[in-house]
Every structure is written in C-alpha cells, then in structure tokens.
C-alpha cells in the first residue's frame, strides 16, 4: 500500500524552478533516502509534503490521519527560547488535543519519558535547550517528532555536523523503527545512509527514483549533473559522469 503519492508536482519561486514534475509513490513502511545537490529542491519537496508550501502544479496524497513527524535541521534552530528539553518533547503531544486551556496529561508526561529513554536523553530532561550540543539537540527534535506517534517520519539532514557517536545512535534508532514507520531521510551523507535504506531518490529539480536502493554511477550523475566526489565514503573511485543531462564541463 502506498502511504505517500506524489503526482507531477512542480514548484516555481518566481522564474526559478525548484521542483519539476516530481512524481513518486512511497510504500508504507519503507525507508527512503533522498540525496541531491544544494538547491536541488530537497527541502522544498519536504515543505510541500508538510503543507508549508503550496505546489505550483500537481498534487499529492498522504494516507495517514496523523501529522507527519518532522525533524527540522537543528542548526537552523532558535536555541535562545527559554524552554527545557522535557517541555520541547511534550509539545509533540499537542497534536491530537488542541483545546482551549490545554494542559499536558499524566499520560503525555509518561509517554515523553518513554521517548526520552528510547533516545537516551532522559538525563537531559531539565536542561535548557540553549545548553545542548548539536547531537543532543538533534535527538531532542527526533524525540519530539516521535511523540506525535507519526506514521511518517521526515528528517532533514539529521546527521549533518554531529559527532560520530550521535550519528551511530541515530542510525541505530532508524534500524529499530524500520518497517514500523515510513521514513524519509534527506542526507548529504550518501555513503553512510546506503546501508540502512530500502530505496533512494536523487533530487535535482527533477526526481530520479531507484526502488532497489542501489546507488549507481548513473543515478548520481543524473541527479547532480556534475562530478561527484564520494571517495570520502569509502567508494574507491571518483564518479565522473558523462553529463547526460546537458551539464557543464568542469574540466
């Protein structure tokens, strides 16, 4: 069963095409990685799914009555707000009860404790978010997203600029959630996500989707349209694509 169906979505910012006729169907319970160059429209696509941006043309359907669990890029985050970790996580439980004089229930609080334990951040509960490291903040944001009991989890660069221990923790969590939730992971970290994901989509204004998860040279070259250096991730050669899509010659 497809949980997300996107049909011919285009988004224009003025004259600039951010997304061009993007179509994809995502099966329930899959873990999909989205890679692509900066400005390739990754964040735009997510914002469309979240309802933050209206697509210029095209349509999409999300077959879930719960809000999407969204984990934003933590380094875009305003950390000066006077709030403690446990209060941030509790916020996630507001999704189903938004009544006047809203108060968090005992169940909400118990659930937040459970989620904190799952993320290994229970000892940070009373810490101000301004006192958190990048990796800790990222775990808090994931915990908050899990509080909504989402069917779909979308993460925007969750492992960018955090230490390798936190990164391993987060990837391990994905392995636990795999199959139970549909996960969309945006990442620059092509090499390290390939072992976790079921399938991969490359987005550079247009979308190239590979159901089997194999990252081929052609996939990457098509998406990036320019030389991609993935030596750092243990791939023993530099991908030099043939500029199939009318790319520029960088030599």
């Amino acid at each position: 069963m497809n949980i997300i169906e996107i049909k011919d979505i285009s988004v224009n910012y003025g004259n600039v095409k951010a997304l061009d006729r993007v179509s994809i169907s995502i099966k329930k319970g899959t873990f999909i990685g989205v890679i692509g160059p900066n400005g390739g429209g990754k964040t735009t696509l997510i914002k469309v799914l979240l309802g933050l941006i209206k697509p210029t043309t095209g349509e999409f359907h999300i077959h879930s009555d719960k809000p999407i669990g969204y984990v934003p890029q933590f380094n875009n985050f305003e950390k000066k707000f006077p709030i403690t970790v446990c209060k941030v996580i509790l916020m996630g439980s507001m999704s189903d009860k938004k009544n006047i004089f809203h108060k968090y229930t005992k169940e909400d609080k118990e659930k937040s404790l459970k989620v904190m334990t799952l993320m290994g951040i229970e000892d940070l509960s009373e810490r101000l978010i301004s006192q958190l490291s990048g990796g800790q903040m990222q775990k808090v944001l994931i915990a908050r997203a899990l509080m909504t009991d989402p069917d779909i989890l979308i993460l925007d660069e969750p492992t960018a600029s955090i230490d390798s221990q936190s990164r391993t923790d987060i990837y391990n969590l994905f392995n636990d959630l795999k199959g139970k939730k549909t996960i969309i992971l945006i990442s620059h970290d092509i090499g390290s996500i390939s072992s976790y994901i079921d399938s991969i989509a490359c987005l550079n204004v247009q979308l190239y989707f590979h159901e089997n998860g194999n990252l081929t040279e052609e996939t990457i070259s098509k998406a990036y349209g320019c030389p991609v250096d993935i030596i750092a991730h243990g791939v023993p050669h530099r991908v030099l694509p043939e500029h199939l899509k009318g790319g520029h010659n960088h030599d």
């Binding site: 933050l52 999407i68 969204y70 916020m91 999704s95 938004k98």
Partner: peptide, 8 residues
C-alpha cells in the same frame, strides 16, 4: 513550523 504541522 512544527506548530503548523501538528495542526495549530
């Protein structure tokens, strides 16, 4: 953004 997504 998060507030919007959870329906506020």
């Amino acid at each position: 953004e998060f507030a919007f997504i959870i329906g506020i």
